[in-house]
Protein backbone atom coordinates (compact mmCIF):
# COMPACT_ATOMS: atom_id res chain seq x y z
CA UNK A 1 0.00 0.00 0.00
CA UNK A 2 2.84 2.30 0.69
CA UNK A 3 3.92 1.82 -2.84
CA UNK A 4 0.90 3.64 -4.20
CA UNK A 5 1.80 6.40 -6.56
CA UNK A 6 -0.47 9.28 -7.26
CA UNK A 7 -0.06 9.68 -10.94
CA UNK A 8 -3.78 10.35 -11.28
CA UNK A 9 -3.46 13.57 -9.38
CA UNK A 10 -4.47 16.62 -11.30
CA UNK A 11 -3.59 19.95 -9.89
CA UNK A 12 -5.35 22.84 -11.48
CA UNK A 13 -3.60 25.50 -9.45
CA UNK A 14 -0.24 24.81 -10.96
CA UNK A 15 0.25 28.44 -11.78
CA UNK A 16 0.61 29.58 -8.17
CA UNK A 17 4.13 30.92 -7.86
CA UNK A 18 6.20 30.29 -4.83
CA UNK A 19 8.83 32.75 -3.75
CA UNK A 20 11.49 30.67 -5.38
CA UNK A 21 9.65 30.78 -8.68
CA UNK A 22 8.80 27.09 -8.72
CA UNK A 23 5.21 26.03 -9.15
CA UNK A 24 3.13 24.11 -6.65
CA UNK A 25 2.95 21.29 -9.11
CA UNK A 26 6.67 20.89 -9.10
CA UNK A 27 6.78 20.94 -5.34
CA UNK A 28 4.15 18.29 -4.98
CA UNK A 29 5.83 16.04 -7.49
CA UNK A 30 8.75 15.90 -5.14
CA UNK A 31 6.89 14.52 -2.14
CA UNK A 32 4.25 12.36 -3.74
CA UNK A 33 7.04 9.87 -4.18
CA UNK A 34 7.76 9.95 -0.46
CA UNK A 35 7.97 6.45 0.92
CA UNK A 36 8.18 5.58 4.52
CA UNK A 37 8.96 2.41 6.41
CA UNK A 38 6.10 0.07 7.18
CA UNK A 39 2.42 -0.05 6.38
CA UNK A 40 0.04 2.85 5.75
CA UNK A 41 -2.58 3.18 8.48
CA UNK A 42 -4.54 6.09 7.05
CA UNK A 43 -4.61 7.17 3.45
CA UNK A 44 -6.39 10.13 1.98
CA UNK A 45 -6.80 10.61 -1.73
CA UNK A 46 -8.01 13.76 -3.45
CA UNK A 47 -9.67 14.90 -0.25
CA UNK A 48 -11.67 18.13 -0.53
CA UNK A 49 -13.63 19.66 2.33
CA UNK A 50 -16.10 22.51 1.91
CA UNK A 51 -17.87 24.59 4.55
CA UNK A 52 -20.80 25.85 2.54
CA UNK A 53 -19.08 27.64 -0.34
CA UNK A 54 -15.79 27.88 1.51
CA UNK A 55 -13.30 25.42 0.03
CA UNK A 56 -11.30 24.74 3.18
CA UNK A 57 -9.21 21.73 2.15
CA UNK A 58 -8.05 21.22 -1.42
CA UNK A 59 -7.21 17.90 -2.94
CA UNK A 60 -5.17 16.45 -0.11
CA UNK A 61 -3.43 13.17 -0.81
CA UNK A 62 -1.32 11.68 1.91
CA UNK A 63 -0.39 8.36 3.45
CA UNK A 64 0.11 8.14 7.18
CA UNK A 65 2.21 5.18 8.30
CA UNK A 66 1.24 3.12 11.31
CA UNK A 67 3.08 3.16 14.63
CA UNK A 68 4.67 6.51 14.02
CA UNK A 69 4.12 10.18 14.75
CA UNK A 70 2.99 12.41 11.92
CA UNK A 71 3.02 16.14 12.53
CA UNK A 72 0.76 18.57 10.69
CA UNK A 73 2.04 22.12 10.64
CA UNK A 74 0.96 25.27 8.90
CA UNK A 75 -0.38 28.75 9.52
CA UNK A 76 -3.63 29.33 11.38
CA UNK A 77 -6.74 28.69 9.31
CA UNK A 78 -5.02 26.55 6.69
CA UNK A 79 -7.18 23.51 7.40
CA UNK A 80 -5.15 21.34 9.77
CA UNK A 81 -8.05 20.76 12.14
CA UNK A 82 -10.35 20.24 9.21
CA UNK A 83 -8.05 17.55 7.84
CA UNK A 84 -7.77 15.90 11.24
CA UNK A 85 -11.54 15.83 11.65
CA UNK A 86 -12.01 14.25 8.27
CA UNK A 87 -9.90 11.27 9.40
CA UNK A 88 -12.53 10.08 11.90
CA UNK A 89 -15.47 11.68 10.14
CA UNK A 90 -16.07 14.24 12.86
CA UNK A 91 -16.71 16.67 10.02
CA UNK A 92 -20.04 14.90 9.52
CA UNK A 93 -21.15 16.58 12.69
CA UNK A 94 -20.72 20.07 11.23
CA UNK A 95 -23.83 20.82 9.29
CA UNK A 96 -22.29 23.01 6.61
CA UNK A 97 -19.35 20.67 5.99
CA UNK A 98 -19.16 18.53 2.87
CA UNK A 99 -16.40 16.05 2.10
CA UNK A 100 -15.27 14.85 -1.33
CA UNK A 101 -12.63 12.24 -2.03
CA UNK A 102 -11.52 9.23 -0.12
CA UNK A 103 -9.96 8.32 3.19
CA UNK A 104 -8.93 4.76 3.91
CA UNK A 105 -8.36 3.33 7.32
CA UNK A 106 -6.50 0.01 7.28
CA UNK A 107 -7.29 -0.11 3.59
CA UNK A 108 -11.03 0.32 4.12
CA UNK A 109 -12.82 3.33 2.70
CA UNK A 110 -14.40 5.28 5.57
CA UNK A 111 -16.47 7.55 3.33
CA UNK A 112 -18.72 4.77 2.10
CA UNK A 113 -22.24 3.68 2.87
CA UNK A 114 -22.64 1.39 5.79
CA UNK A 115 -19.50 2.34 7.67
CA UNK A 116 -20.01 2.07 11.43
CA UNK A 117 -19.09 5.51 12.69
CA UNK A 118 -19.21 4.45 16.32
CA UNK A 119 -16.71 1.69 15.69
CA UNK A 120 -14.54 3.94 13.53
CA UNK A 121 -14.31 6.59 16.24
CA UNK A 122 -13.61 3.96 18.84
CA UNK A 123 -10.54 3.02 16.85
CA UNK A 124 -9.58 6.51 15.70
CA UNK A 125 -9.61 8.62 18.85
CA UNK A 126 -9.35 12.37 19.02
CA UNK A 127 -8.13 15.10 21.36
CA UNK A 128 -9.77 18.40 20.49
CA UNK A 129 -8.14 21.79 20.04
CA UNK A 130 -10.04 23.25 23.00
CA UNK A 131 -10.40 21.09 26.10
CA UNK A 132 -13.91 19.71 26.48
CA UNK A 133 -14.21 17.57 29.61
CA UNK A 134 -17.71 16.45 30.61
CA UNK A 135 -19.30 18.22 33.58
CA UNK A 136 -18.69 15.10 35.63
CA UNK A 137 -16.05 14.00 38.08
CA UNK A 138 -12.51 13.34 36.90
CA UNK A 139 -13.04 9.67 37.59
CA UNK A 140 -16.25 9.56 35.56
CA UNK A 141 -14.60 11.42 32.69
CA UNK A 142 -11.99 8.71 32.34
CA UNK A 143 -14.28 5.73 32.77
CA UNK A 144 -17.02 7.19 30.57
CA UNK A 145 -15.84 5.65 27.29
CA UNK A 146 -15.04 2.15 28.57
CA UNK A 147 -18.30 2.08 30.53
CA UNK A 148 -20.34 2.94 27.47
CA UNK A 149 -18.49 0.32 25.47
CA UNK A 150 -19.29 -2.24 28.14
CA UNK A 151 -15.62 -2.82 28.98
CA UNK A 152 -16.13 -1.71 32.54
CA UNK A 153 -19.21 -2.40 34.57
CA UNK A 154 -19.57 -1.44 38.18
CA UNK A 155 -23.26 -0.66 38.47
CA UNK A 156 -25.70 -2.28 40.84
CA UNK A 157 -27.08 -4.51 38.12
CA UNK A 158 -23.60 -5.64 37.13
CA UNK A 159 -22.85 -6.48 40.73
CA UNK A 160 -26.04 -8.49 41.00
CA UNK A 161 -25.00 -10.37 37.88
CA UNK A 162 -21.68 -11.15 39.53
CA UNK A 163 -19.56 -8.71 37.58
CA UNK A 164 -17.80 -5.85 39.28
CA UNK A 165 -14.94 -4.14 37.51
CA UNK A 166 -14.26 -1.65 40.25
CA UNK A 167 -10.58 -2.58 40.48
CA UNK A 168 -10.20 -2.43 36.73
CA UNK A 169 -11.78 0.99 36.71
CA UNK A 170 -9.41 2.27 39.38
CA UNK A 171 -6.47 0.84 37.53
CA UNK A 172 -7.57 2.33 34.23
CA UNK A 173 -8.07 5.76 35.76
CA UNK A 174 -4.66 5.76 37.35
CA UNK A 175 -2.91 4.45 34.27
CA UNK A 176 -4.57 6.92 31.89
CA UNK A 177 -3.93 9.85 34.18
CA UNK A 178 -0.31 8.83 34.66
CA UNK A 179 0.19 8.60 30.91
CA UNK A 180 -1.23 12.08 30.51
CA UNK A 181 1.05 13.42 33.28
CA UNK A 182 -1.91 14.44 35.39
CA UNK A 183 -2.03 11.78 38.08
CA UNK A 184 0.14 13.54 40.65
CA UNK A 185 -1.98 16.66 40.51
CA UNK A 186 -5.40 15.05 40.83
CA UNK A 187 -4.82 11.75 42.60
CA UNK A 188 -6.47 13.00 45.79
CA UNK A 189 -9.49 14.58 44.16
CA UNK A 190 -10.70 12.15 41.56
CA UNK A 191 -14.31 12.75 42.56
CA UNK A 192 -14.15 16.51 42.00
CA UNK A 193 -15.81 18.00 38.99
CA UNK A 194 -13.51 18.16 35.99
CA UNK A 195 -14.63 21.70 35.18
CA UNK A 196 -12.80 22.82 38.30
CA UNK A 197 -9.44 21.93 36.75
CA UNK A 198 -7.22 24.52 35.12
CA UNK A 199 -7.17 24.81 31.34
CA UNK A 200 -3.95 22.85 30.99
CA UNK A 201 -5.16 20.19 33.40
CA UNK A 202 -8.39 19.88 31.44
CA UNK A 203 -6.38 19.40 28.28
CA UNK A 204 -4.40 16.58 29.85
CA UNK A 205 -7.61 15.08 31.21
CA UNK A 206 -8.94 15.00 27.66
CA UNK A 207 -5.80 13.22 26.54
CA UNK A 208 -6.25 10.71 29.35
CA UNK A 209 -9.89 10.26 28.41
CA UNK A 210 -8.91 9.57 24.82
CA UNK A 211 -6.33 6.99 25.92
CA UNK A 212 -8.83 5.24 28.17
CA UNK A 213 -10.68 3.70 25.22
CA UNK A 214 -7.44 2.37 23.75
CA UNK A 215 -7.80 3.55 20.14
CA UNK A 216 -5.47 2.46 17.33
CA UNK A 217 -5.01 5.95 15.95
CA UNK A 218 -4.84 9.07 18.09
CA UNK A 219 -5.54 12.40 16.45
CA UNK A 220 -4.29 15.29 18.56
CA UNK A 221 -5.12 18.89 17.80
CA UNK A 222 -2.51 21.07 19.53
CA UNK A 223 -2.50 18.97 22.70
CA UNK A 224 0.22 21.05 24.34
CA UNK A 225 -0.96 24.54 23.47
CA UNK A 226 -1.98 25.42 27.04
CA UNK A 227 0.73 23.56 28.90
CA UNK A 228 3.82 24.67 30.76
CA UNK A 229 7.22 23.36 29.62
CA UNK A 230 7.28 20.54 32.16
CA UNK A 231 3.86 19.19 31.27
CA UNK A 232 4.66 19.71 27.58
CA UNK A 233 7.75 17.62 27.82
CA UNK A 234 5.80 14.90 29.63
CA UNK A 235 3.20 14.92 26.87
CA UNK A 236 5.94 14.75 24.29
CA UNK A 237 7.42 11.74 26.07
CA UNK A 238 3.97 10.20 26.11
CA UNK A 239 3.55 10.74 22.38
CA UNK A 240 6.95 9.22 21.81
CA UNK A 241 6.00 6.15 23.85
CA UNK A 242 2.62 5.88 22.22
CA UNK A 243 4.22 5.68 18.80
CA UNK A 244 5.46 2.18 19.62
CA UNK A 245 1.94 0.79 19.51
CA UNK A 246 -0.25 3.54 18.17
CA UNK A 247 -0.44 5.76 15.15
CA UNK A 248 -0.31 9.37 16.24
CA UNK A 249 -1.25 12.37 14.11
CA UNK A 250 -0.57 15.65 15.84
CA UNK A 251 -1.25 19.25 14.88
CA UNK A 252 1.15 21.74 16.36
CA UNK A 253 2.20 25.35 15.92
CA UNK A 254 5.46 24.70 17.66
CA UNK A 255 8.18 23.93 15.08
CA UNK A 256 10.63 22.63 17.67
CA UNK A 257 7.98 20.33 18.98
CA UNK A 258 7.23 18.99 15.53
CA UNK A 259 10.92 18.50 14.91
CA UNK A 260 11.42 16.75 18.25
CA UNK A 261 8.58 14.29 18.28
CA UNK A 262 7.49 13.48 14.76
CA UNK A 263 8.77 10.96 12.26
CA UNK A 264 7.24 12.70 9.28
CA UNK A 265 5.81 16.15 8.82
CA UNK A 266 3.12 17.48 6.51
CA UNK A 267 3.09 21.20 5.81
CA UNK A 268 -0.21 22.87 4.91
CA UNK A 269 -0.18 26.41 3.68
CA UNK A 270 -2.91 28.98 3.43
CA UNK A 271 -5.73 27.98 1.15
CA UNK A 272 -6.04 24.43 2.45
CA UNK A 273 -3.27 22.86 0.38
CA UNK A 274 -0.83 20.23 1.46
CA UNK A 275 2.42 21.68 0.18
CA UNK A 276 5.04 19.26 1.35
CA UNK A 277 5.18 15.93 3.14
CA UNK A 278 8.39 14.19 4.00
CA UNK A 279 10.62 12.86 6.74
CA UNK A 280 10.71 15.40 9.52
CA UNK A 281 14.47 15.79 9.26
CA UNK A 282 14.19 16.49 5.58
CA UNK A 283 11.43 19.07 6.05
CA UNK A 284 13.30 20.96 8.70
CA UNK A 285 16.75 20.74 7.21
CA UNK A 286 16.24 20.85 3.52
CA UNK A 287 12.67 21.42 2.36
CA UNK A 288 11.96 21.21 -1.33
CA UNK A 289 9.77 24.26 -1.41
CA UNK A 290 10.98 27.74 -0.71
CA UNK A 291 7.59 28.60 0.77
CA UNK A 292 7.92 25.82 3.32
CA UNK A 293 11.39 26.96 4.21
CA UNK A 294 10.11 30.51 4.66
CA UNK A 295 7.31 29.26 6.87
CA UNK A 296 9.56 27.12 9.00
CA UNK A 297 12.12 29.81 9.47
CA UNK A 298 9.40 32.28 10.32
CA UNK A 299 9.65 34.51 7.28
CA UNK A 300 6.16 33.84 6.11
CA UNK A 301 2.89 32.76 7.67
Amino acid sequence: MSETTHSERTDTDSTIETTAGETIEQVQESWTDYKFQGEAKLTSEGLDVYYGDDHALKDVTIEIPEKSVTALIGPSGCGKSTFLRSLNRMNDRIRSARVDGSVQFDGKEIYQEGIDLVELRKRVGMVFQSPNPFPKSIHENITYGPRKHGDIETGLLARLLGRDDWDEAEELVEQSLRQAALWDEVADRLDDNALGLSGGQQQRLCIARCLSVDPEVILMDEPASALDPIATSKIEDLIHDLAEDYTVVIVTHNMQQAARISDQTAVFLTGGKLVEYDDTDKIFENPESQRVEDYITGKFG
Binding site: V118, F128, N132, G145
Partner: peptide, 12 residues
Protein backbone atom coordinates in the same frame (compact mmCIF):
# COMPACT_ATOMS: atom_id res chain seq x y z
CA UNK B 1 -18.51 20.17 22.69
CA UNK B 2 -19.91 17.58 25.09
CA UNK B 3 -21.65 15.77 22.26
CA UNK B 4 -18.51 15.93 20.11
CA UNK B 5 -16.34 14.64 22.92
CA UNK B 6 -18.69 11.74 23.46
CA UNK B 7 -18.97 10.93 19.77
CA UNK B 8 -15.18 10.98 19.40
CA UNK B 9 -14.96 8.31 22.09
CA UNK B 10 -17.09 6.04 19.95
CA UNK B 11 -20.21 6.35 22.07
CA UNK B 12 -23.59 6.04 20.39
Amino acid sequence: EYRDASAALGVT
